[in-house]
Write a protein that binds this DNA or RNA. Sequence first.
DNA 1: TGGAATAATGTGTATCTACATAAATCTTGG
DNA 2: CCAAGATTTATGTAGATACACATTATTCCA
Lengths: 143, 143
Amino acid sequence: MATATEADVRENCAALRARMAARKLTRLYDKALRPVGLKITQFTLLIAVEEGRATSLSALADMLALERSSLVRNVKLLEEAGLIDAAPTGEGRSLGLKLTKAGRRKLTDALPLWKEAQDAVERDLGPAWPGVKRSLHQLIARI
Amino acid sequence: MATATEADVRENCAALRARMAARKLTRLYDKALRPVGLKITQFTLLIAVEEGRATSLSALADMLALERSSLVRNVKLLEEAGLIDAAPTGEGRSLGLKLTKAGRRKLTDALPLWKEAQDAVERDLGPAWPGVKRSLHQLIARI
DNA sequence: TGGAATAATGTGTATCTACATAAATCTTGG
DNA sequence: CCAAGATTTATGTAGATACACATTATTCCA
């Protein structure tokens, strides 16, 4: 259990590596989605809202491994863009977040573009993709 | 080659998964480094500067999978904090970025805290860690 | 019922990131 | 030596993220 060295950080730091991977992937998907004017963060948030499984902003934040306060800002942008409707429509415990017609249309337009980026990633990784996918799931589940 | 569905995104999107993992890891490492007043981004940037292998900001940005413009802002903060010295000291091709005494001391103080976070991650992942590490390297190398 | 305890949400502030564009610097052919 | 072209660095603007703190809504029991 010797002291950690700078070389240890460079070689092993999980946060550094995950952030580097996230930056590269974000740029790639953002570029692919550009024709519809969405960023990958916004696209995946629309997808999560569409699913409609979360019963509160806090629950949705947990599902996305996001701070609730961050989610609030991200949701607000999509509301202002007219893609999400945040009507507190009662119905007991439901979150009240849902896609507008424009939001659903945007999602439909974006899906093929997302698919292109995703296919490119899976192609670039080749046979390594299943292992990478499993690793990302493990990271999210266990950290 | 059917059309992608929302469920495909939820299950497979590499960008979403990588961002979720990065968010969780960032929070964990940031919390660990808090006693020395560094964030994991700043800590790893100090480590990269200390290495001294990059010959330009652009080269350093590439090494970190960062946009040059993003790196400029990150460097500026560390300069203002007195941890990095950006003297363009000539010497031909060198970048001119180097740690100040305070920067080196900060790094020394931070290393054991980083180690705690890193150990926690490796412990939580258990035997999955080597595969996860390999996957992150593959993502960075191939995307 | 009236609050106290709890949960849910929003704001202030700061950092991280990136694209587009501008400015400065370096390199080379004439 | 100088101007055209290329490389490098900085700025404007905008979105993503998080912590601390403030606010609002809900629940539940004495």
